[in-house]
């Protein structure tokens, strides 16, 4: 049994030691964008069992009140909801990790559920220059006529795998990357954001 075993291990942010909180880049004036380091979220991939997508749709609606997004869509309310990530595949997002309890059992026989909370790192990109900033690294059209709130793209940021969804028209985007790539991602971000001036914050607890 693990009861009573003491450990010195402590939870560590995906961005710890990589992304320094504070004002950076172009000095003076309002920052062009804010980078908010997300923490404590729950994240799982759902892959529908062949032929069970409709049943999965019903259970997600009945249990969570969430609707499965169409390809390229993100159905979010606040910090919770579903984001499309491939044919018959979605990301389930929860504000807190403990909300995920029971997800696997609820979807047994309908979807393969894999906890990704520790596998991905998420940074929220928001501000008047957020679009110009991301456009430097994403080879997709971010113009509002092509990409709007409620849309998602699985693509690459500076050649590193990334999933990006738009939350609002500020614009605000959430960018999910492999946790192991945060050092390289931040190296690109800090250089790409410098010209706009940027604030780095930790997500409110």
């Amino acid at each position: 049994m693990s009861d009573g075993i003491e450990t010195t291990w402590r939870p560590r942010s995906a961005w710890a030691g990589i992304a320094p909180v504070g004002r950076h880049g172009r000095p003076g004036g309002e920052p062009g964008l804010t980078l908010t380091l997300r923490e404590e979220f729950g994240l799982a991939t759902l892959i529908a069992v062949k032929g069970r997508t409709d049943a999965l749709r019903q259970v997600m609606d009945a249990r969570f009140g969430w609707s499965l997004p169409d390809p390229g869509g993100a159905n979010l309310t606040g910090e919770r909801g579903l984001v499309w990530s491939g044919p018959d595949q979605w990301l389930a997002l929860f504000e807190e990790r403990r909300e995920m309890a029971g997800l696997g059992q609820a979807l047994e026989g309908l979807a393969a559920v894999t906890d990704q909370s520790d596998a991905r790192a998420i940074v929220r990109v928001s501000g008047p220059d957020a679009r110009a900033f991301l456009a430097k690294g994403l080879a997709i059209d971010l113009h509002p006529r092509a990409f709007q709130p409620g849309q998602v793209a699985v693509t690459a940021l500076a050649h590193m795998g990334a999933q990006v969804w738009q939350r609002d028209a500020v614009p605000t985007y959430d960018l999910a990357v492999a946790r192991s790539s945060t050092g390289s991602v931040w190296s690109w971000m800090s250089h790409a954001a410098a010209e706009f001036g940027y604030d780095v914050r930790n997500a409110a607890p």
């Binding site: 390809p71 390229g72 491939g86 080879a139 997709i140 059209d141 699985v154 693509t155 690459a156 050649h159």
Partner: peptide, 11 residues
């Protein structure tokens, strides 16, 4: 057909 037009570097 799933993602829309993308650069050939993604393929």
């Amino acid at each position: 057909p799933h993602c829309g037009p993308r650069d050939n570097g993604e393929f």
